[in-house]
Design a protein around this nucleic acid. Structure first.
Lengths: 215, 215, 215, 215
DNA sequence: AATGAATGAGACTTCATTCAT
DNA sequence: GATGAATGAAGTCTCATTCAT
């Protein structure tokens, strides 16, 4: 939308190279501190070109955002399909692990999301967040609804509330992983990252049986 | 240590006014984008004065951080004592509500924490985060341990894992509240903020009985 | 290396104008007190441009230094060649006069050297000084060695010591001239500057025959 | 002259402590870069006091200058008297060594002189320099005149010219020593400083017999 | 008489953006 | 269409000086 035809006509590998470089810049430094000077230096393109492609720093950012979100959505959609048929707690567990795997391979995606979430004056901030948050919530509610329909979950369970809890745990894992990437010594994970798989399994068990359950 | 004697000698209401103004600035814009120019303009003091008080932007930040953390710690310690004797889920519920109340009255405190958490080049970032994270985790583990000792929770429950889940939910609420303050129309809360009390109660129930429980 | 391609691509008369203006600034005020503000004001260019050209105040300084040193070296090399064949004391005399002439036409060159020599925190100070001092000493030692080889000087004369004395006198003349430019009324020259030529000749005579000689 | 009665009434050890601290500051950083902030911090006195004592940065500087010059003059006068009776080249040699010794013990004195000599906008610069230069020249001319009177030097020797040469060598040694203090690795001395005594003797010999002499 | 808090000019530097080539 | 030189606002920080206490 904000992209000029000039950019569209670029060979698509160059398009990708530019968006990818910009993603790194924004994910590393946030919107305000991201420097177009740094960016063009790293990309080896002229500073003027950025403005011909995207009119604005804001325009570039918007495009980078789309680029990033689409990668994530595609990934998650894949997970939802691949796990269809498994029981609901397995699917939750696998979704968490899929998220962790995505961050592991591409930490910038989640870091960009966090920057948008907590930085003050990002252009279209509310709008961008909405589009992510809704997608995430829908994803989880769908998972849980499948669980109710298959009889694994009590039909009286309030799906919104349950989704709230699941989402909390999911985000907690993802944040832990993202922060671990920034500060390996912080120990946010409560366990070494290499034991993530085991940890996720156990936490999902706690989620399943509740804190007041029998262990 | 980061504060000059000049600052210590100021009338304490002036000290507070300055720290409070700085807290707002950092909480709103994060470390890097916070502007001493705009701070002194708002405070109506000379630019040079800030540097007589704090050596550095970083020094000011360090002091603001202490200032903020102490407020939070005192608040939480109060809650822990006041709820001693209540059952563990009530205590969790009240702790969440206390946190929400604190944010309601002083949204900048949690926003500052989030900025520190996710911004890149904050001075002493890892160190500052540690000091917050450890405090939070200890607080929750203590609560749960009390619950085990009073027989409310199964002694086989892994406290670390349980704390992970509780912390996740707590943070999710706090983030929701903080973000709601930044973007009231975002709807992150899944419910209007005025219904927070009810919502917290229900979520804690989900937490208590687990997703696979009977409702 | 200290110069950005941006600067290299400038029309060379603009390059020269900038370096020349900067030379004046540094020669007048030394490194620390030289003001880029006042430089750009005098040059009529934007403050930002300086930083596109030179990364740093230090970078600008380094380039100005090269610019200045090369002028001097070229000049001196010219004198060495032109006087080849003359007797050694004539060559010394002409070298001093050449130095004085250079300062007369471009007083800033030697003033810059003095600033580097006696100012404290100049970037790469020791390194820069070395490069000048060695050149100067070599120049004089070469002159004297030619004198020994042509039989004008006693082969037992310690060239290093002799060079020390010649260098002292040379520098004394140059300093006198440079300071005279700063404070015309100071009378450091012991004689009006217009009589420099005669004065140099006589001083070289004293140098030649020694203080204990017959006059 | 520029000193307030307030300063005069100070206990004289405090006066000295202040002037000495200021001497260090000016000798290290020159006039413009010397920081009253640093000075008062080091002295442990109030910033306001400086202005009550000296009205100005310039006033403080003028006083420090007097303080320093008097030390040097007293020292040199001592040397002149102590060496009376020795032959003129011995006296020159001893004067150089005395100067070197003074710098060795109190490098700040000569560094201050150099700063005044080569820095641009020092208050009363010309005036201050005059008072030093004249003293130095008179000192040397006196020495040489004694030499003529005692028959050691040819009465036809132009004393002004000879003094010019001697002064040059003297300053060259002092500058070398002062710079050596700032940059020990620079090698300006042509010999290790520990061999200064021998070096001075040899250079004075060159001075005595001239470059064209027999060795 | 001494203090030290307050001040604001001016220092270097970064950056998004414009526009002639 | 691409380039990159030019710009100036805004950033952090230092400093001499003033003046109420």
């Amino acid at each position: 939308m904000a992209t000029s035809p000039t950019f569209q006509n670029l060979p698509s590998d160059k398009q990708e190279r530019i968006l990818d470089g910009a993603l790194s810049e924004f994910a590393d430094k946030g919107y305000a501190r991201a420097s177009l000077n740094s960016l063009v230096a790293r990309l080896g393109i002229a500073k003027g070109s950025i403005f011909q492609y995207f009119t604005d720093k804001a325009g570039l950012f918007a495009h980078v955002f789309d680029f990033a979100v689409n990668r994530v959505k595609n990934h998650l959609r894949g997970v939802r399909e691949e796990t269809r048929g498994a029981d609901v707690f397995t699917r939750i567990r696998l979704s968490v692990l899929a998220g962790l795997g995505l961050i592991e391979k591409n930490p910038r995606l989640f870091r960009l999301y966090l920057k948008i979430m907590f930085e003050g004056d990002i252009p279209f901030r509310a709008q961008l967040l909405q589009s992510i948050l809704l997608f995430g919530r829908d994803y989880i509610v769908d998972l849980l609804r499948d669980g109710v329909e298959s009889g694994e979950l009590d039909p009286n369970l309030n799906l919104e509330l349950a989704a709230f809890v699941v989402e909390a745990v999911l985000e907690r894992f993802l944040v832990a992983s993202a922060v671990e990437h920034m500060d390996p010594d912080l120990g946010l994970f409560a366990a070494g990252q290499e034991r993530a798989e085991e940890l996720v399994g156990q936490v999902v068990m706690v989620l399943k049986h509740g804190l007041a359950g029998k262990y």
